[in-house]
Design a protein around this nucleic acid. Structure first.
Length: 415
DNA sequence: TCTGGGGTCCTAGGACCC
DNA sequence: TCTGGGGTCCTAGGACCC
């Protein structure tokens, strides 16, 4: 079997770079896109800000402490979305097999179209891709190339900023071996700490274990690291990653949530927020012509956990007899979940999500299901039309009053 | 007066069916 | 007086990713 050629393309400091491109006065300035103190976090930091040690996912208060002159931008998701479309249109010219990971990041499997690229070496293909993106959008992208997804991803990360790095199949083990264990895709803070305690500090140390040792070592690692989980990581550490590039992944859930500016003691405020989230989720379901059978309520209390910055969280869900895309139905179900039992007050965050997603048409063929009570369908159509024209804040069903949900900003770690 | 919001995947227990 | 084992669905929680 000939090895695959997989590119991982990842925009450099995406949101921050878009802002600096469009506003020349921001060039050379330490800035972040994200939520302001006291409760916000950094979604993206310009390279000038990174010189102060500011990183994605850092609390904004901490960022401000490191750089008192830091400029905060709220971010413009609609703009980043448009920019994302342009970038993905470029990616699509390189292969039909493009798997988005986020607005600014994708795997591109070019194995089957090497000929179409004039049998150019992979590194040359990566170079052309970078040039196209820079010329057409004015933005920088880093590209990693490898025989499997994870290697391509780590390579792009290692090459940043403005990077281009190919790891050949016979170089994989040597490339991975010296990396700290936390760089492995799927090893976060909790697993990293557990692996370190078990004496596995580098990817190479894990890769060098004998298969027969794994079960015993998993015992030593503990902390929820099952033998199966450790074996998965072990394979990744050896550069074995069988996952294919999947161009057509459908969303499995749609959710909206918000952290309140201040802790909430009033159930009516929670109920109102549920209503807004339910309508927002429903609008997105209808826009994508899908519906879901599971309604999920998420509540974050103010109780802190041992991990810094973590709070105790509760979730309750209910399966519906039929798939729905109706905000009123989602809201009613979520409110019933809220009322089902005592929850510790006050509340820091509340969220509503719909899962069990199926396409509207497929579902109708299956079971003649109708997603909203007939009397609501006219109303929903009207709501969608008004929202499309005037934006999400223009119209709201029922009584209002709660804080508006904060804008959505994805975090880009390790750019 | 100290960490967001969008997701995915995995695990584990219990209910239920055959 | 006794009760296996597999499969599937549901729910809750947690780790992880960007």
């Amino acid at each position: 079997m000939t090895p695959r050629v997989i590119l991982h393309a990842d925009m450099d400091a995406f949101y921050a770079s878009v802002e600096q491109r469009d506003r020349p006065e921001l060039r050379g300035v330490a800035l972040v896109v994200g939520g302001k103190p006291p409760r916000g976090v950094v979604a993206a930091a310009s390279y000038e800000a990174r010189r102060f040690g500011i990183r994605s996912a850092m609390p904004s208060v901490e960022a401000l402490r490191r750089c008192p002159d830091l400029v905060f931008l709220p971010g413009d998701m609609a703009k980043y979305g448009r920019e994302s479309k342009r970038i993905f249109a470029i990616f699509a010219r390189y292969s039909p097999d493009v798997e988005p990971l986020s607005l600014d990041e994708a795997f591109i499997d070019v194995t089957s179209c090497l000929r179409a690229h004039g049998d150019a070496p992979p590194l040359e293909i990566g170079r052309r891709l970078k040039d196209d993106v820079l010329r057409e959008t004015g933005l920088c992208v880093s590209v990693g190339i490898g025989p499997v997804k994870m290697i391509a991803k780590i390579a792009s990360d290692a090459s940043k900023p403005d990077g281009l790095l190919e790891v050949m199949p016979d170089e994989v083990r040597a490339f991975l071996a010296p990396l700290p264990i936390g760089r492995l895709w799927g090893v976060g803070p909790v697993t990293e700490a557990a692996l370190l305690r078990a004496g596995l500090a580098t990817v190479g140390a894990l890769a060098d274990l004998e298969v027969s040792e794994l079960a015993r070592r998993a015992q030593r690692v503990g902390g929820g690291c099952t033998p199966a989980a450790l074996e998965r990581l072990w394979r990744l550490a050896r550069g074995e990653d069988a996952r294919e590039v999947e161009p057509e992944r459908e969303a499995k859930s749609y959710g909206e949530e918000n952290t309140f500016a201040e802790d909430v003691h009033d159930v009516r405020v929670l109920s109102d927020a549920i209503g807004q989230h339910a309508e927002a989720v429903a609008r997105r379901l209808r826009k994508d012509e899908v519906a879901g059978t599971v309604v999920r309520l998420k509540v974050k209390s103010t109780e802190r956990l041992a991990m810094p910055g973590k709070y105790r969280q509760y979730s309750r869900q209910e399966s519906l007899p039929e798939a729905t895309d109706d905000g009123a139905t989602i809201a009613r179900t979520a409110r019933a979940l809220l009322a089902r039992g005592e929850l510790p007050m006050p509340v820091r965050l509340i969220g509503v999500a719909v899962a069990g997603i199926r396409s509207r048409t497929a579902s109708m063929g299956e079971q003649m299901s109708i997603f909203a009570p007939p009397r609501n369908r006219e109303l929903n159509r009207a709501l969608d039309a008004i929202t499309a024209r005037f934006g999400a804040g223009a119209v709201r069903r029922g009584a209002g009053g709660a804080d508006k949900a904060s804008p959505t900003l994805g975090v880009k770690r390790g750019e």
